[in-house]
Write a protein that binds this DNA or RNA. Structure first.
Length: 560
RNA sequence: UGGUGGAUGGUGUAAUGGUAACACAGAAGAUUUUGGUUCUUUUAUUCAGGGUUCGAGUCCUUGUCCGCCAACCA
C-alpha cells in the first residue's frame, strides 16, 4: 500500500464497530486489547459474504494492534467435514490474512461439559425427556407464552445423574436434552429454556467417537469466545436475538465477558449467498463444483481470476453497517477491473475470427512486431508478435454497411492493426450464402508501429493474430448465474431463476506467447476482457476463463 | 399484530445538533495505437406527519414500510 493510500484510509470515517473499539480503547476496557475471531462452521466453502466478515474481523484487529483467531464452529458432527476445514484455511490465507491461533469449538468440549454441570448445580439447567414435538408445542408462540416442561423442576442430583448418563450413551438419540432453565414466558423465544446439549451418536471429524452429546451453538459460541478472551465477537444481524443468551451464559457461568456485535451480511445482485443453496447448486449439478468460476465462493472467484486485492478493495468499499443491503455486482466487477488493469499482461486473441489477406504483403514472410505488455506499467516491457500476409481479426470489427461512427473496418476504410501496420480494406469476399468469409486488404508500407512516417491518422485500432502462428485455445465466457437481480424477493424457488446461458465455451485464436501462461498469470485479451488460465488446462489444451469483460461503451452505443 | 433491529440519490456508505458528501451505476465531452485506462462535466438523496431548537438526516413523538426470531442448524 502506498503512503497516500494509507493516509486516505486513516482519514476515512470509522464504521460503527471501529467506533465501539476506539471507545473501548479510550476507556481502557480489557487494557486496550483487541482480539477478534473468525468462526466458520466447516460445512461448506467460504463465499464473498464470508470475505466481508474476514476483512472486518482481521481488519479491525490489525488496525488496533490486536489479532484474530480462526475458530471452527464444529459443534454439529453430522454436517461437518475436514475437507471444508482445509478449504477454509486456504481461502483465508489466500485472501491475505493470518490468524493468531487455529482453534476448534470441539477443543472445548470438556470445558463446555463442565460448564453444563456448573449450570445444573446452580439449578439453571435440567434434563428434559420431552420429544422435540412436545418441546416445540410447549414453546408457545411470539404472542403467547410457553408452558413449563413437566421435567423442569427435577432436583440437581437427578439432573446430574441423568446428564452423565446422557454423556455415557445410555439414552437413545433424541430421547433427552439438556435445557437451560430461564423463562418460558420470555418475549425473546430464544430465552424460553433453550436446548443446550443434545444426543448424537455421530462421528466427529476431530473428536471421533469420544462424545455422543454435543453442545448447541448458543452453549458453545459465547463460551468459546470467553475461553479465548475474545474482546469483540462480531457476527451478523440474525444473531441479535441470541445476544441475550450469549450474555446470560457468560453471566451465570461467571466467565470472561466477551461481547457480541452484529453487522449486516452481504447480499449481491444476481447471486445467492447461503451455504445451503450453494451446496444445492453443487449437489444437483447446476455448477461443476464449489470452485466453479460462476460461484460466489472464494475458490470460484479465485479460479475465475479475481485477485485477493480486488476482493479486499470491494469489502472496503461496501462498508459496514446494520441495515440490510443488496450490493450491485458491478461494484465487484469494477474492483477487479481496477486491479487487473494495473497488473494484467496484454495479449492479442481473436474470439470470433474473420480472415484478412493482406494482398500486397509478401507470402512466406513473418515479420515480428513489438508490442507493450502493459501500457499502465512503464517497466512492463515488450514482446514480439508475429505478423504475416494472413491474419485473423474479430468478425464484429468489420461491417458491410457501417454506421456513421464505426471506426473499424469497412470496404474503403482504414484501421491500424495494433503494434503493426495500417491497412485499408479493398474487398469483402462472400460465399454462395452471402456470408463474408474473407477480407482483402492492403497495408501501408511506411506505417509500421514505432516507425510510422505515413502521416495517416486512423480512428480505430484492431487486435489481430497471424493465421499461421495462431494458437487455438478454449475460452469459457461466463455470465451471471441467475437471471433476477434480487433473489430474496423473487417468486418461487431460487433455482427457477438460474440463467441457462451462464457458460459459453468457444475456440479462440491466440498469439503464440499465450503458451507461457500459468494459472497465476493475469492477462488482458486486448479490447476483450481479462482472462486467466483455468485449472482444467493441460499443456496440450489451453483453457481460459473470462474473469470479466472490459467496459464496453461502444457496445452500448451500437446496441441502441 | 409479541419481541427485536432497521429506513439518507438507481445501489452502497458518510455526515456523531451547524453548507447533505464520497464511490459505483447512468449521461455528456476531452485524450487515447485497447470504443480500455485517464481527465473534465453532469443527473439524482434524508420514509411520512407532528414537536423541541436560532438551527434537525441526527433529539422527542405518532405512524408507515422492511428485516430477523417459534431447528435436538450455525
Amino acid at each position: 500500500m502506498s503512503e497516500i493510500a494509507k493516509e486516505s484510509t486513516e482519514e476515512k470515517s470509522l464504521n460503527f464497530i471501529e467506533q465501539i473499539i476506539e471507545e473501548d480503547i479510550r476507556t481502557g476496557k480489557h487494557e486496550g486489547r483487541v482480539l477478534t475471531r473468525f468462526p466458520p462452521e466447516p460445512n461448506g466453502y467460504l463465499h464473498i459474504g464470508h470475505a466481508k466478515s474476514i476483512c472486518l474481523n482481521f481488519g479491525v484487529a490489525q488496525k488496533y494492534g490486536g489479532g484474530t483467531n480462526l475458530r471452527f464452529d464444529d459443534t454439529n458432527p453430522v454436517t461437518e467435514d475436514t475437507e471444508y476445514v482445509e478449504s477454509i484455511k486456504n481461502d483465508v490465507q489466500w485472501l491475505g490474512f493470518q490468524w493468531v491461533n487455529e482453534f476448534y469449538a470441539s477443543d472445548y468440549f470438556d470445558n463446555l461439559y463442565a460448564f453444563a454441570i456448573d449450570l445444573i448445580k446452580k439449578g439453571l439447567a435440567y434434563v428434559d425427556e420431552s420429544t422435540s414435538e412436545q418441546i416445540a408445542s410447549l414453546k408457545g408462540t411470539p404472542t403467547e407464552p410457553g408452558t413449563n416442561s413437566p421435567y423442569r423442576d427435577r432436583g440437581v442430583e437427578e439432573n446430574l445423574d441423568l446428564f452423565e448418563r446422557m454423556k455415557n450413551g445410555e439414552f437413545p438419540e433424541g430421547s433427552r436434552t439438556l435445557r437451560a432453565k430461564i423463562d418460558m414466558a420470555a418475549p425473546n423465544m430464544i430465552m424460553r429454556d433453550p436446548i443446550i446439549y443434545r444426543i448424537k451418536f455421530a462421528h466427529h471429524h476431530r473428536t471421533d467417537d469420544k462424545w455422543c452429546i454435543y453442545p448447541m451453538y448458543d452453549f458453545a459460541h459465547g463460551q468459546s469466545d470467553s475461553i479465548e478472551q475474545i474482546t469483540h465477537s462480531i457476527c451478523t444481524l440474525e444473531f441479535i436475538p441470541h445476544r441475550d443468551l450469549y450474555d446470560w451464559c457468560i453471566d451465570k457461568l461467571e466467565i470472561f465477558p466477551s461481547k457480541q456485535y452484529e453487522f449486516a451480511r452481504l447480499n449481491l445482485t444476481y447471486t445467492v449467498m447461503s451455504k445451503r443453496k450453494l451446496l444445492q447448486l453443487v449437489n444437483e449439478g447446476h455448477v461443476t463444483g464449489w470452485d466453479d468460476p460462476r460461484m460466489p465462493t472464494i475458490s470460484g472467484l479465485r479460479r475465475r481470476g479475481y485477485t485477493p486485492e480486488s476482493i479486499r478493495e470491494f469489502c472496503d468499499r461496501i462498508g459496514i453497517a446494520r441495515r440490510d443491503n443488496l450490493i450491485d455486482v458491478s461494484l465487484l466487477e469494477f474492483c477487479v477491473r481496477e486491479h487487473l488493469n494495473k497488473i494484467a499482461q496484454r495479449r492479442m486473441v481473436v474470439l470470433d475470427p474473420l480472415k484478412v489477406v493482406i494482398t500486397n504483403f509478401p507470402e512466406d514472410t513473418v515479420e515480428l512486431c513489438l508490442s507493450e505488455n502493459n501500457p499502465e506499467d512503464p517497466n512492463g516491457g515488450m514482446r514480439e508478435v508475429p505478423f504475416s500476409r494472413e491474419v485473423y481479426i474479430e468478425r464484429e470489427d468489420f461491417m458491410e454497411n457501417p454506421p456513421k461512427k464505426f471506426f473499424r473496418l469497412a470496404v474503403g476504410q482504414m484501421v491500424r492493426l495494433k503494434s503493426a501496420y495500417i491497412i485499408r480494406c479493398d474487398e469483402a469476399i462472400k460465399d454462395e450464402a452471402e456470408n463474408i468469409i474473407e477480407l482483402r486488404c492492403s497495408y501501408i508500407e511506411n506505417s509500421k508501429s514505432g516507425n510510422d512516417t505515413s502521416g495517416i491518422n486512423v480512428k480505430g485500432t484492431l487486435h489481430w493474430v497471424s493465421v499461421s502462428e495462431a494458437l487455438p485455445i478454449e475460452i469459457r465466457q461466463y455470465d451471471r448465474l441467475f437471471k433476477v437481480e434480487d433473489l430474496a424477493s423473487a417468486e418461487g424457488d431460487f433455482k427457477d431463476h438460474i440463467n441457462p446461458n451462464s457458460l459459453e465455451v468457444i475456440t479462440g485464436y491466440a498469439e503464440p506467447s499465450l503458451k507461457e501462461a500459468t494459472v497465476d498469470t493475469k492477462i488482458q485479451f486486448v479490447r476483450k476482457g481479462y482472462f486467466c488460465l483455468d485449472t482444467d488446462a493441460t499443456s496440450d489444451k489451453l483453457i481460459f476463463n473470462r474473469t470479466v469483460g472490459l467496459k464496453d461503451t461502444w457496445g452500448k452505443v451500437a446496441g441502441k
